[in-house]
Design a protein around this nucleic acid. Structure first.
Lengths: 271, 271
DNA sequence: TTGCTCCTCACGTCACGTGAGGTGGC
DNA sequence: TTGCTCCTCACGTCACGTGAGGTGGC
């Protein structure tokens, strides 16, 4: 209410703008405006540069002086900008009619809702990061790896398997579930289990180890009469498989030798 | 499971990396890696430049070829970056131990929750934008303006009042509620009501209109014996009030004249 | 006189986007 | 041969941040 010496501005019927509410002489400095609305001084200058906020009149020192209109305008700008609206779009909205404005605000609100959902999804992704890489792989693959672990397959081999399946997820995601199911079925066959565990043990052997021949013969015989039928050729995936085989074979000289031996004994380019 | 002609990579105990899981020869091109993980090719190159993702080996054409490790690394990078972590921080996290990593992920998750709350706040702000500027003003001021409206004060004057209060909110937010309450109390006095409405009507008058003298006398008399006691001077706010008075007085020559007259008749610098 | 706010350039930053100009595999 | 992906510079973008160098009010 001020005092007898200073007019409380709304004690009287309020004194008003000279021409319109848009360009009344200013009272607030740029710093006062900034702290009140909650933006930086630099941001306000930036909005002037971009033409978003009208340049106010200056006082005797060349300082910008802002009125009530600037407060309202800046709040509008900040609200839209905080909602993620690009400044170019903010400019359009400020100069467009109320119907277009209302429609746009509806869309912006929807976008905000979408971003909230997105962030909630990212929280779950983060939780997955901590839980390991399981979410990278299909559930069927995770189950397969768990079953291998139970069979006594070493951590090193599990890692190799996981890497292979990770790449398959990238190369042929639509086939991964089917392949994993087939491999899981094969692993129920004790014969295949034995071959798998024998090969694992051979990983570190010398490629000239005489025991490799027996392993290769066993594998070749199995491939002739598999317990679980092998599916038909899929030419589109042949290239991906070949690449994977070449990459993965690089790990162990003994395995490379085993593949040669199987290829020879099976009489066909089995691998 | 591939075919007899192409090795299904996990049909055998899986062939592995040559030295460690971190630098197996690559299979995926940069485009395949990008689409699988859901980032752009340019982003991957950027991560290489920043040292976030190790440069893989090249094939015969100079193309980058990525292995499973790159898939896992890139997913980690994307997950963290999507969560709003600056790339410099991502770099630190990738090279830090699991305990520090877990702690940091906890903080990042908290930051995500904060941002979700922030977005929900912004949705409410947006809704406020549509509901008008009411949230800019304290509830007491909104109520005061409503009461003025009911008293028959014109929309133009209401706008002038709102602008004045908006500026006061910026200049002295802690005093606004008190002032608004005092003005509301004054407005219960029929004498003050009459002065207010008379002044409002005088807004467009010629500054030489002879009726102004009577209005000024009425106001001066009221100031000598207010129905509601005026508070003590508040020197800290005197400057703000003076600025506001000067700004608002610019609107109407008749009002400027009225202020002069009141100042003369009250015998003190009342305004 | 010191400290704080204001002023105008103008370059820096962050995380890539976007051509520019060229090569390689199907 | 055409179309698509890949390669390396290198400048552009968006919304300001951050000094640089100077003036004005208390």
């Amino acid at each position: 209410m001020g005092t007898r010496r200073t007019s409380e501005p709304s004690e009287e019927p309020s004194e008003g703008p000279s021409e319109g509410p848009s360009d009344e002489p200013g009272v607030l400095t740029i710093g006062e405006l900034a702290t009140h609305v909650g933006v930086t001084v630099r941001a306000i200058r930036h909005y002037h540069q971009r033409g978003l906020l009208a340049e106010p009149s200056r006082d005797g020192s060349g300082y910008r002086r802002y009125g009530a209109r600037a407060v309202a305008d800046l709040i509008r700008i900040k609200t839209l900008a905080d909602a993620g609206v690009p400044l170019a779009r903010v400019h359009q909205l400020l100069t467009s009619g109320p119907e277009a404005f209302a429609r746009a605000v509806g869309e912006i609100d929807q976008a905000l809702q979408d971003r909230i959902a997105e962030f909630e999804h990212r929280r779950r992704q983060l939780a997955g990061l901590m839980a390991g890489e399981r979410l990278v792989l299909a559930a069927e693959v995770v189950e397969l790896l768990d079953r291998m672990s139970a069979l006594g397959v070493s951590d090193r081999t599990i890692t190799l398997e996981r890497d292979g399946w990770t790449l398959l997820m990238a190369l042929a995601p639509e086939s991964v579930a089917k392949w994993a199911a087939e491999k899981a079925a094969a692993l129920t066959d004790p014969d295949f289990q034995q071959i798998y565990l024998d090969w694992e043990e051979a990983y570190d052997w010398d490629p000239n180890d005489p025991r490799l021949a027996a392993l290769a013969a066993h594998a070749a015989a199995y491939l002739e009469h598999p317990a679980v039928p092998l599916p038909d050729p899929d030419p589109g995936l042949a290239a991906a498989n070949a690449l994977l085989a070449a990459q993965l074979a690089a790990g162990s000289p003994a395995w490379r030798r085993l593949e040669e031996l199987v290829r020879d004994q099976a009489g066909s380019p089995a691998f």
